[in-house]
Design a binder for these strands. Structure first.
Lengths: 247, 247
DNA sequence: TAAGATGCCTACTCATGAGTATGATTGAGC
DNA sequence: GCTCAATCATACTCATGAGTAGGCATCTTA
């Protein structure tokens, strides 16, 4: 419920292990905000590594080389920790919407810009919390708050899609389902990006936008040769059987 | 580790509350398999409702109108319960691959068929478990097993994409990223389908396949009017600013 | 109808982890 | 140097929930 917001992660590659500001110097220095941010960021990292329920506050504290009560000095509960991580991630996406709102370009380009930022946010250190924060893990109040934020983003995407259909820059489609598909593909990055970090968040986002734009079906220019002619005939296949796949 | 597999859910709309076979009749009947399936299905439902960690075995037992030790009579641990739910979901997708393998149709159509089954599986009662089963919640052995199954499906999709690019039925693209995007969009159904059940799993899957096929950019036939001409000019926008969105 | 075998329950153990009471230590301002 | 507030640690409490020990019915089979 704190209105402060975590700054986006420092530029450059994901820092491997940022030094804890707690043990930075022997004297206890008084930079509360800095330390609070460090607590939340450490929590995000641990949640990302081991999941919310499998991470104890002792784990997070150990990461920061402090003890559990110190965490509680900066935050009121474990739940709030998750919530703050969530908000930090979502805020990056909200910023993308604001940045794009007044641009004089077709809606599809504005949508692409938002999706690019979206993808990068999901690949950030807060991505996991943003995407996996379950209503079930949070109190009703926080759950409601999160739902509102999520819904806001969802409707922002739908609106851009509708505008794109209107201005002709986007293929006519069901805005709701399309928004679900786009957001889902991007959200899912948080699941596999931990294992496979061969690309940066920006590269992934770009690749996804390219895929969304083009679609699977070949464009006229690319389908000079009839697809049917090149189809491999298969041994035991039958076209009759294929009909039931449409059911 | 049990090799038995749960049958796909009974046809028709999602049954609201199937009667517990435990209290079906006064006499204790000896249909072990049936009851075991009921245990796993009940677990899937509760995990779906409240999440894995927020569901106690007492909850699941209560659902079945039995007590916790009864659960342990059919299953060795909570972890195994999650694992069985996962496998039950994944098996539906594996079946789709088998069914499609020998069809003599372009790869894009085979891919579409798989994606349709995929979407329906994710919208099924086992969808949540299949999609949200985290490695972190499971023992190393089961985690490995799950990763193998997931990877199998992932590579199956990639293969179909590559075949489609080869036979000309699919737009040239990065098979790995495209597979991630498709699977992600479909997996995400498990997240929102609990709240919004206005469509059936099959309808959602169809809608998604349509979206994937078409892509966002209008097809030649649909873009008779230049997009640029229809673009709304916006008050405070500037094209100069838009350049930084590409960064 | 006696003797297992099967199915299920009552009543526990026990580890884990969130959150707290209390007090020690340090720095800032006077 | 003294005082107070900010900062952090030691050492707890306490609820929860996974898993188990042991026993009582009920059914099957001879």
């Amino acid at each position: 419920m704190n209105s402060r917001r975590i700054a986006p992660p420092p530029a450059g590659k994901a820092s491997v292990q940022p030094p804890s500001p707690f043990r930075a110097s022997r004297e206890r220095r008084r930079d509360r905000e800095l330390k609070r941010d460090a607590v939340i960021r450490a929590a995000a990292r641990e949640f990302n590594r081991r999941g919310y329920h499998n991470t104890s506050l002792d784990d997070i504290a150990a990461r920061l080389e402090v003890t559990k009560p110190t965490i509680y000095y900066y935050v009121t509960s474990k739940e709030q920790l998750l919530f703050e991580c969530f908000v930090a991630g979502v805020e990056q996406i909200r910023a993308a919407f604001r940045e794009v709102r007044d641009l004089a370009v077709p809606a599809r380009e504005r949508l692409n810009a938002v999706l690019r930022h979206y993808g990068q946010a999901v690949a950030s250190e807060f991505g996991w919390c943003m995407v996996r924060a379950e209503d079930q893990d949070l109190s009703p109040a926080m759950s409601r708050h999160i739902k509102v934020l999520k819904s806001e983003i969802d409707h922002g995407i739908r609106r851009l899609i509708r505008e794109g259909v209107q201005d002709g820059s986007i293929q006519p489609c069901d805005a709701k389902m399309t928004a679900f598909a786009l957001a889902g593909a991007l959200n899912w990055i948080a699941h596999w990006y931990r294992e496979d970090r061969s690309l940066t968040g920006a590269q992934i986002a770009d690749a996804f936008v390219t895929i969304f734009e083009a679609g699977l079906r070949p464009r006229s220019s690319a389908s000079r040769v009839s697809a049917r002619d090149r189809t491999r005939r298969r041994a035991r296949g039958s076209l009759a059987r294929s009909s039931k796949l449409q059911a």
